[in-house]
Simulated scan of single mutants.
Amino acid sequence: MRISRTLPVAAVVAAAGVLSLAAVPAQAAEYSSALKVKGVQYDAPGRDSNKCSGGNTAAEYLTIKNYSKTAKVNLKGYVVKDAAGNRFTFTKSHTLEPGDYIKLRGGRGTDSDTKNVVYRQNCNFIWNNDKDTIYFYKPSGARADVHSYTKKANDRDGNGYINYHG
């Protein structure tokens, strides 16, 4: 008589499910949010200079888009963070119509809904030129979107821009 030492089918399926979940990178998760990160200019063109006058931090930006076909979304209270914990909170009302976008730029400037721009009012760079993680949170604290990048793996043409969500 041969004794079978196999796991019950349910245990095998459960273990396989756990293994497949562990292998999924954070940026592959889809969050329930109309607003998502469309792209990031993580490496501003030219030589990096975070001087408020004559620097190029305004050329570093994050594009956030409203992917909803019907809902208007106000950015007030949304938060953008990087892996090191640098953060920006949208403190003013900026309503994005369906399909509309806004560029969150470094440096100082005048926010404009008509020009689709918000300035961080900070002349320091937020995104690292070699690798970083972009976290985007709803006002409730729930994650709206997240993307990790490395220059080598994600910026094949080397222009300092990475496109997400089309």
Rank of each mutant, 00 (worst) to 15 (best):
N159S: 09
Y137A: 00
N159H: 05
N74P: 07
V18H: 03
D111T: 05
Y149P: 06
S4V: 10
E60M: 00
T150N: 11
N86E: 09
T133L: 01
N154Q: 10
L35N: 11
I126F: 10
G46T: 06
M1G: 09
E60V: 05
Y119F: 15
P45V: 03
Y119P: 10
T114W: 06
V118W: 14
D113P: 04
V117D: 12
T133V: 14
N124E: 14
N154P: 10
D48C: 08
N74C: 10
A22Q: 13
L75I: 02
P98A: 06
D155K: 00
P8R: 06
Y101E: 15
N86G: 08
Y135L: 11
Y164R: 06
V73H: 07
Y135F: 13
S49C: 12
A153W: 05
K115S: 09
A153P: 04
V80K: 03
Y137M: 04
N56Q: 03
G99Y: 10
S68F: 02
Y149C: 05
V117R: 02
P98Q: 01
V40H: 02
N128S: 11
N122C: 06
T89F: 08
L75S: 12
A59W: 01
I134K: 03
A14Y: 03
R105Y: 10
A71D: 14
K151N: 13
N86K: 08
E60C: 02
W127S: 00
T63W: 08
D157I: 06
Y119S: 12
P45R: 01
L21Y: 13
P139F: 01
Q41A: 13
V18L: 15
A15C: 07
V117C: 07
D155N: 12
Q27L: 04
D100P: 07
T150K: 05
K151Q: 10
S112C: 05
N154W: 01
I126E: 09
Y61I: 01
K72S: 15
S49V: 06
D43S: 14
P8F: 05
V79M: 15
C52A: 15
S68P: 09
N50H: 07
C52S: 15
N159L: 04
M1R: 07
A83F: 12
R2C: 12
K69N: 14
A71Q: 09
P139M: 00
H94P: 03
N122V: 02
V117Y: 04
V12N: 02
A28Q: 09
G77H: 03
A29M: 06
G160C: 06
N74K: 08
L75H: 05
Y101G: 07
I134W: 02
S20V: 13
A142Y: 08
A23C: 10
Y149R: 04
T95V: 15
S68N: 11
I162T: 07
V12R: 04
D145P: 09
N124P: 01
N159E: 12
A26C: 05
S49L: 13
Y164P: 05
L19V: 12
Y67S: 11
K92T: 08
D82I: 01
N163E: 15
S140T: 12
Y61K: 12
A84E: 14
F136R: 00
R143T: 14
Y161L: 04
R120E: 13
K131G: 13
S53G: 15
L96M: 06
